[in-house]
């Protein structure tokens, strides 16, 4: 399997706090990789490195054969068009309607007519299980619907890679399952490379083709769900069992 994204020896500190400490990770093309790790352990920072929102202190981020840490803003924008990202709270523009939110990337980066855009927006919303919500404001939607709309916006431009920042946090078990299924379907149907950050143990095994554990600023375990389940790594064992006893210190 070819690697879509390679992170090589990434170091990143904020002030005195070292968040990433020589991190290496390869993300395979057309697969879903789940990154797990404790809260505040640098998972979101890692995701922001992949899309160039944060530059590393040292190290390389290679996306589709190109080291994005060396690019200027204009070149970086070209690379970003390959990405879609689902933010934790959706990050929908609350001054715009659902329709305007989903059409935003299309209006920005394509020369489609209004009619074509309307069709694509309806199509993408249908793909995430929503119809007839184009005229609503994000504030009128429930948390689960907002995430669906955000996913529709993330896949509007047919990206190759979609990043999910804790897609199921704060949702009830039924919605969690619905969003997981949505991630699986979207990944399969559009043949996407997906990177998912999650705390939810069930979701991890459900959506992930590969699972990576981030701990102490490094990836300390990486493998298929079966390999991860069978691992004897004490950090991983503690993380999966949710025990307070073990190498992970609670402040």
């Amino acid at each position: 399997m070819q690697d879509m994204i390679q992170l090589k020896d990434i170091h990143k500190s904020f002030g005195a706090q070292k968040v990433l400490d020589g991190l290496d990770l390869n993300i395979e093309d057309g697969q879903t990789t789940v990154i797990i790790g404790r809260s505040g352990g640098g998972k979101s920072v890692l995701l922001k490195h992949i899309i160039g929102l944060i530059r590393p202190d040292s190290g390389q981020v290679v996306v589709d054969g190109e080291d994005i840490t060396k690019l200027n803003d204009k070149q970086l924008n070209e690379v970003r068009k390959k990405f879609g990202m689902l933010f934790q709270e959706g990050a929908l523009f609350d001054s715009m309607t659902v329709g305007e939110n989903v059409s935003f990337p299309l209006v920005e980066h394509t020369k489609m007519t209004d009619e074509e855009i309307r069709q694509v927006v309806a199509e993408r919303l249908k793909a995430v299980g929503l119809t007839g919500v184009e005229g609503k404001m994000p504030s009128e939607l429930s948390g689960g619907m907002r995430k669906r709309v955000a996913l529709a916006r993330a896949i509007a431009l047919h990206p190759q890679i979609v990043l999910f920042d804790e897609p199921t946090t704060g949702l009830d078990p039924v919605l969690t399952e619905a969003i997981n299924q949505l991630i699986i379907d979207t990944q399969r149907n559009l043949n996407l490379t997906c990177i998912v950050i999650s705390h939810d143990i069930e979701s991890i095994f459900r959506v992930g083709h590969k699972i990576a554990l981030l701990y102490g600023g490094k990836i300390i375990e990486y493998g298929t769900p079966e390999e991860i389940r069978a691992s004897k790594n004490p950090v991983l064992v503690q993380f999966l069992s949710g025990s307070t006893e073990g190498p992970i210190q609670i402040m």
Binding site: L53, E78, R80, F83, F87, Q88, E89, A91, P105, E108
Partner: peptide, 21 residues
Amino acid sequence: AELGSMRVTEQIDALYVMAAN
């Protein structure tokens, strides 16, 4: 207030991600 809440709810990051300035 508006830009501030856009910043803390990651809407500004979302603009960057969608290659919009």
